[in-house]
Design a binder for these strands. Structure first.
Lengths: 187, 187
DNA sequence: ACCTGAACACCGTTCAAGT
DNA sequence: ACCTGAACACCGTTCAAGT
């Protein structure tokens, strides 16, 4: 005899994400998730493969949301301003969701990587913007430069690595300006 | 009646580091460490505060070693080449010790941060090299740009985030060249 | 002074049993 | 078809007891 479902995969992922963002990765426990969705921990295995699979799903949702934020960043006639807006959006997202963002380039076990579709979508957005500044031939490699920098910057910022005083916002502005100078199409 | 010590804090930290580098963070278990140093897990608490404290100590040792590698990077009459050598050394270190490097800017619990002395030493080395390229006024902020970029780059590289083909080494070279152009002292 | 076994609370995960 | 309690293996950590 069938039993009515008490929860859903989406609800489980949402509950897990909330736990992660509010209390950090250590608090992301199957028991805690189960309690939120009104079920016992073993029942979660009907919908997710385990804790690792849950983390992977959360990372995908977060990546998807980051992609949307990047796509929604205000465009400008000046390609450099568009790229600048994208970088600002990424930093704002990271600071608003520190625990979730911290998982974005964390080495997930095995090949449980990010959904290739999501990855391609983010890449496409940044590569487009970078190409309009650096030139189409350098689009991919310029995008990698910008993404590596912004990711390293906010990671260090979130880790509290900028301890030597000075103006962190100032360092951010200096960074994006220097990058734009560096990748600007010669001629 | 005193009992002869079977191990030492240094031996424990070294065993933990070996475990981390060979098998990853999940394998860094107090039981496994204890077995290596020839003791039972509870005895470790005589010398370390717990697993978190052990991780913190390992991060400090690794940071110290990275500082030494940066300091040993070949200097050059051309300040840009010196900075380039430092970045190459950092990347080589990260690729040689992926698991250990991955902890460097990980948000450690509470204020269990890196030893301020070690942090200051690394910062001093990079700030010096960056200042010689960007000018003393911009030394700190230029160093942050370079460190954020190299950290983001190798983190993404280690996470397997550069999936869109192209030449990763080429992107690395492009990146450091663009950075040096961007921070070069105007005039 | 250092080490140990035993115990505790807490994980993720599996599975037979219930409806 | 979905849910549950019980069980298992494995954690980190504490502590009284041994030498």
């Amino acid at each position: 005899m069938p039993t009515p479902a008490k929860t859903s995969t989406d609800e489980i992922v949402a509950a897990g994400r909330g736990l992660l963002e509010r209390e950090g990765l250590d608090a992301l426990t199957l028991k805690a998730v189960a309690e939120i969705v009104g079920v016992r921990a073993p029942s979660l295995y009907k919908r997710i493969g385990g804790r690792g699979d849950l983390v992977r799903r959360i990372v995908n949702v977060v990546s998807d949301e980051l992609a949307a934020q990047l796509a929604a960043a205000p465009a400008s006639a000046d390609a450099r301003d568009s790229l600048r807006g994208m970088v600002l959006a990424a930093r704002a997202f990271a600071l608003a969701h520190p625990h979730a963002y911290g998982l974005l380039f964390a080495p997930l076990p095995e090949d449980w990587g990010i959904d290739p579709d999501v990855n391609a979508r983010i890449s496409g957005i940044v590569i487009g913007a970078a190409g309009r500044v650096a030139g189409e031939d350098d689009a991919l490699t310029a995008a990698r430069l910008v993404v590596a920098w912004i990711h390293g910057f906010v990671t260090m910022e979130l880790a509290g690595a900028f301890r030597l005083g000075g103006d962190v916002d100032g360092s951010f502005d200096y960074g994006i300006d220097a990058l734009l100078r560096g990748i600007a199409q010669p001629g």
